[in-house]
Design a protein around this nucleic acid. Sequence first.
DNA 1: GCTGCGGATGTAATCGATTTCTTGGGGGCT
DNA 2: AGCCCCCAAGAAATCGATTACATCCGCAGC
Lengths: 333, 333
Amino acid sequence: MANIKDVAERAGVSVATVSRVLNGRSPVAETRERVLAAVEELGYRPNVVARALRTARTRTLGLVISDLRNPFFTELADAVEQEARRLGYSLIIGNAGESPEQQDDYIRTLLDRRIDGLMVSSAGTGSAMLREVVAAGTPLVLLDRSVPGVAAPCVRAEGRAALTGLAAHLAALGRRRPAVIVAPAGTPIGDERLELFRAALLAHGIALPPERIGSSPDLSPSGGRQVTRDLLDLAEPPDAVLATDNLMALGALDEVRARGLRVPDDLALVVFDDVPWFAHTDPPLTAIAQPTRELGRAAVHTLLERIEGRPAGSVLLPARLVVRRSCGEPPTH
Amino acid sequence: MANIKDVAERAGVSVATVSRVLNGRSPVAETRERVLAAVEELGYRPNVVARALRTARTRTLGLVISDLRNPFFTELADAVEQEARRLGYSLIIGNAGESPEQQDDYIRTLLDRRIDGLMVSSAGTGSAMLREVVAAGTPLVLLDRSVPGVAAPCVRAEGRAALTGLAAHLAALGRRRPAVIVAPAGTPIGDERLELFRAALLAHGIALPPERIGSSPDLSPSGGRQVTRDLLDLAEPPDAVLATDNLMALGALDEVRARGLRVPDDLALVVFDDVPWFAHTDPPLTAIAQPTRELGRAAVHTLLERIEGRPAGSVLLPARLVVRRSCGEPPTH
DNA sequence: GCTGCGGATGTAATCGATTTCTTGGGGGCT
DNA sequence: AGCCCCCAAGAAATCGATTACATCCGCAGC
């Protein structure tokens, strides 16, 4: 593979001149053309590794995601990747599989590769490694999940408006005994959703007692199914369920079907994260849609601000209530 | 961030000695310990970029996938990533979004980054860039989709046994008018599945006439729905449908529901690719499961063989028929 | 006691780019 | 005509590692 020296020789100039032509500095028309011709003829492409060593910029970003197989995160990763590429950056995606150790391990690898910046959708609670990243001065942006004690901007969605709308929707349809399936204890974002929902329900005089809040052992269909089983076994079972993650909602649907119950007649079901599949279930599920692609784009932009040394704050984008038919009464339009 | 020189100074040795200690060559116990102590104290981590420049090995692999949001490919990518990492390699994932231009663009970027090897699940038909990769001597492995004219090992699943089993299954259940939804014309793997299925049906005396083969304009739910609409509008509509991709199957399910038909009573439905979701549809879908994770692992292993200069052939892994309830008659066990 | 060998370690070249410093020549101003 | 300035372009330093080659040492064999 041709290198810059080959090009210089062929064009009869020095390597410095070649570099300058390619980086758009100084040289004059005639020399410039000779160089470009040589580049063309040799099919020369600059060695990104050498450039990175010299400039200390790799033009690579890292993204550590908590679970790549969760379709919400898949779409998020896809959005991040596209935006990064559009802006001339490559992306290395690391999958933490909801394991903090694996997450730290991956962050280590990414730092070793001298990525220019890092986005993390953190698994579990705090992480010593994240604090280390900040201390080392590597630009960091938290994605979807904020981490207490880590001084970095966080890009995520907030559900106040959507949950307020949802409470009104449920109240209007006469649902009085809502339940919530929340993520494993300690996930800050899950707790926040719960509290916002509780407040929104209260405005309609609807209570959310502790026994109708089920905490799943993990973010999976089977966890969601287990919690749903317990909820339906209550003396006063709920007439509506909000799942705070899409995988857990799948499990809820399974349990409901297994009991021969029907959605929405016997139970209303609402899911957080509007992944494409939920438009294809029977019935189509009412969902709280996070602005996934916008989140991805915002994360990249925020990170680039930090990389270029500008200060950048957190970003909160509103989630949207998407009414389908899983709470009863089809939308009127 | 500390570099090798800092470590050398602190340990009172030369950089060469530090390098040798860290790479497990020669030095004697006493020196060795001084170096390791210095590494520890400074929190030294070798600069991967510099190492890559010198050794001409980046320990990074590239994976270009045709559509990251298709759950089959998501799982494939996840499997590849895990195996690569286990073997000490990082992975850069590129999403071609089923566009050949974007695919070529991405391959270009990956070559520029001097990845050690490349895996491609090619979008569309042939590609000049792929031939260029081979010509440039970069180790290449084709994944899931073979590309005519490109001399590289291909790792994919083959469906003979599964489709033979499926034909028998359908015949046993009395389905006589099967239909197939195939991917856009020219996708070699779709054609192969079609021909294998046709042959398997023939063994049971069941024909697969051209009008019951619907070609979708793209790999999407709406494409699948459109094709299903046409199939159901036939004078003699099919009593079973095989979708050769999971997204198209979703669209088929939509159309069936919209017409108030029931699966499996009115129509049997079988899907290629057993993504987790299909166990949660109503009814759970009978599927042809590709050994996704094994494919991912095999791809990485094959690629590493090539990287290390050993010859490596193609890998064909058998797909499995997973009987659920979408063709009627629940499995007996 | 000299030669030679090998093990531990240092010196310096190298990978391929960017960038600083230097040089030389041409043109404008007085 | 002389001076200065500026601009194009080359020479060489640099990034941080690996590694070929050189050096120095002690010890064994004759």
